[in-house]
Computed example of a mutant assay.
Amino acid sequence: MGSASRAISCLCCPCRCLFSCLCSILVSLAVTLGLLALALYLILKPRMIAATVDSASLSQFALSASSTLAYDLNVTMTVRNPNTRVGLYYDDVQALASYEGQRFGYAPLDAFYQGTGAATKLAPGFRGTQLLQGDVAAAQFRQQQSAGRFDVDVDLNAKLRVKFWAFKAHGPNAKITCTLSVPVPVPAAASASPFQPTDCKVWF
């Protein structure tokens, strides 16, 4: 019985040693990666992108009896890179406009680069027609038209690349969401209050 136990123990010990070594390596690797990530964070001190819609105007925003929306929306916005040590490349930049949760406009924009602390002006424009679904959207349209302002959402999507010194790396996808209250088109908007600059939310 004793001989059998010793034999089993001899067979198991190498496996235990291997498992213990693997655990030690994995723990050491996790700690090293964690310390490296912390060091990079302290060195780079990354900060969130900031975005503001400076102006928004509607030359046309009309809903037909068949629920077809005819629109002409112009927006100017400022996107800022508040980081002092990280430059940002914006690729595949797309601007989207939606009303009552339904997208009605799309505008591709040129890729651009922002150095540290830089700000970039963008001016997406949306023109065309789009069918709106549902009676709720039509009811909201009539109510907001009477109130003199339309609630429109403008989103900006982009793929980011990060630059630190001479190093470049792929970053996250950024989504900038702007909820706007835009005066109805002129001349109906003659008595309406002007558009107020609006801060946007940034998501990764």
Rank of each mutant, 00 (worst) to 15 (best):
residue 31 V to Q: 09
residue 149 R to Q: 07
residue 105 G to P: 01
residue 146 S to F: 13
residue 198 T to R: 11
residue 117 G to R: 07
residue 22 L to R: 10
residue 142 R to E: 13
residue 167 F to Q: 05
residue 183 P to M: 11
residue 44 L to G: 02
residue 82 P to M: 05
residue 13 C to I: 12
residue 180 L to Y: 03
residue 190 A to P: 04
residue 5 S to L: 15
residue 186 V to W: 15
residue 16 R to K: 15
residue 191 S to I: 09
residue 103 R to H: 06
residue 178 C to A: 05
residue 25 I to Y: 09
residue 61 F to W: 05
residue 186 V to P: 14
residue 128 G to K: 00
residue 164 F to A: 05
residue 203 W to K: 15
residue 159 K to T: 11
residue 8 I to R: 10
residue 178 C to L: 07
residue 9 S to G: 06
residue 78 T to M: 08
residue 126 F to S: 01
residue 161 R to Y: 12
residue 178 C to G: 08
residue 71 Y to N: 03
residue 6 R to K: 13
residue 53 V to R: 07
residue 181 S to G: 07
residue 161 R to E: 03
residue 56 A to I: 00
residue 129 T to F: 00
residue 168 K to G: 07
residue 178 C to H: 09
residue 196 Q to C: 09
residue 185 P to E: 06
residue 162 V to C: 08
residue 36 L to G: 03
residue 67 S to D: 13
residue 77 M to W: 08
residue 181 S to Q: 12
residue 27 V to I: 12
residue 150 F to V: 05
residue 57 S to V: 04
residue 21 C to V: 12
residue 72 D to G: 06
residue 114 Q to S: 12
residue 124 P to C: 07
residue 197 P to Y: 14
residue 6 R to Y: 09
residue 19 F to W: 13
residue 16 R to T: 15
residue 180 L to S: 08
residue 100 E to L: 13
residue 108 P to F: 01
residue 173 N to D: 06
residue 150 F to I: 05
residue 88 L to N: 02
residue 52 T to W: 07
residue 8 I to L: 11
residue 182 V to W: 02
residue 81 N to G: 07
residue 62 A to V: 09
residue 59 S to G: 08
residue 69 L to T: 04
residue 90 Y to L: 06
residue 189 A to W: 06
residue 146 S to P: 03
residue 162 V to F: 06
residue 66 S to E: 11
residue 75 V to N: 01
residue 106 Y to G: 01
